[in-house]
Design a protein around this nucleic acid. Structure first.
Lengths: 245, 245
DNA sequence: CACCCTTGTTGATCTGGGTGAACGCGCGGA
DNA sequence: TCCGCGCGTTCACCCAGATCAACAAGGGTG
């Protein structure tokens, strides 16, 4: 079996959409902000939670809009898109299960968030969440830790965008994504790719064609195998060498 | 007078190096984390502060080292450098007075911090600062707000690195820097450049030669004037058009 | 089932910015 | 004072990756 996790068959980690569901059963809790809470506190969180699902290509929120909610992704995947006036696109990140959207705490959204596949979220009104932060300092610390981590990933991405070749970019991308999936589903060689080649290009500062060519090259060199909806890493060590980590 | 702020004559906003100095007199307080504190709290901060100065090209801390201190820049400027194994360099940011280094809260430094000019800092042992954060939730909120802002700047930088032309990069860089100086010294057309062309190139994902070419082009087009240690913006509106903001 | 429309791949060609080299200026140290 | 060296600038040339173009493989729809 070479197939990777399909984009239309998202991980159904959490039984979202069920209003009665409690955070205490949530499988991504350990990965997300919520890990800072337990017992009563978790109940307080549950109380302000709305379980909201989005279908493929649906927009969670749009660049420039007032940011009145924050989200915890429980299953599926989301692309974070910045659009230039002339249509050029830069993707500043992909959100996977356990990721939190709305760290920024700014008045307006700096980017749009668009579901890549069917995606389930825990949604919080910003004012409710902010009030909870005021009463739970360790939740704030956890949030700050996540923001710090995010910042550090963004700085790594700057190196990739500014100083790496096309091949290095694609290799680093695949390794980074595999690592993130590993935290979620424990798989060590599969890297599901719910996003299109165009999305990967807009994330890495490349064109679709170049992404395609580099993927083909890596496959020809037996470093990866391209499978439906993703890749399989045949030789992670060589991939790491290519990424010049 | 066309001269900009020289890199060897840093803003002497805060009388650092004087052990007796109190935060309450610090001119960058409003810009920095410290604005979250007042009265007794400020005294508590003062108590754990060490005033440390660095001369030009001195290293505040190095990539990969254990991160045991955090810094508040009170005067001067600092470059934040990520180095690849093969010597390629990416600068992930420049710290100016009021900026805070050590948001990341991670075990080891993701980058080196090197003084671009004589630089004065308030330095805190990480454990002291962390303890203060535990007792002052609003300081933590302020820190988180700064980290969020930093993250948002990093995402803007991703767009610049991934999707902009050389000319747009340089234009956006000058505008961004001018805006940051404006918060510090209120100047609206001067943009001191304490960093070298090489540093600018490593920040924008360009070579020195290209930076130089673009600066010359902007000067020839009467959009900027190049002066000792910086530039003066002649036509900020046109610069903004060039940056495709 | 036939159609079309989106997505991925591959090939040929072009170009923005990188590469390598030379040169001038200003500054610091002998 | 003079020399050496780092830094910025300019020029000629080149190449990695963009652009333009064609085509194949689904897969959703009437």
């Amino acid at each position: 079996m070479l197939d990777a996790q399909g984009s239309d068959a998202p991980l159904t980690i959490c039984p979202n959409g069920n209003p009665g569901t409690e955070c205490s059963h949530c499988k991504v809790r350990a990965l997300s902000v919520c890990s800072a809470l337990e017992g009563d506190e978790l109940q307080a969180l549950d109380k302000i939670t709305r379980h909201v699902s989005f279908s493929k290509h649906e927009t969670l929120f749009a660049q420039g809009d007032l940011s009145d909610a924050v989200y915890n992704i429980t299953s599926g995947s989301v692309r974070l898109v910045k659009l230039l006036p002339d249509g050029r696109r830069q993707i500043v990140g992909f959100a996977l299960p356990g990721d939190f959207l709305g760290l920024s705490m700014s008045e307006r959204n700096g980017f749009s968030a668009e579901a890549l596949s069917a995606t389930a979220t825990c949604m919080f009104a910003r004012k409710d969440f902010s009030a909870l932060l005021d009463s739970k300092p360790h939740l704030l610390r956890r949030l700050h830790a996540m923001a710090s981590h995010e910042l550090s990933l963004a700085q790594d991405q700057m190196v990739i965008l500014g100083r790496r070749t096309a091949e290095e970019k694609v290799a680093a991308f695949l390794l980074g994504l595999r690592k993130r999936w590993a935290r979620i589903d424990g798989s060590t060689v599969r890297a599901p790719l719910p996003m299109s080649r165009q999305d990967i290009g807009d994330f890495l500062g490349l064109t679709v064609e170049t992404v395609s060519r580099m993927m083909t090259k890596l496959a020809r060199d037996k470093v990866i195998v391209i499978v439906p909806d993703g890749v399989r890493l045949l030789d992670p060590a060589r991939l790491e060498a290519l990424a010049e980590t």
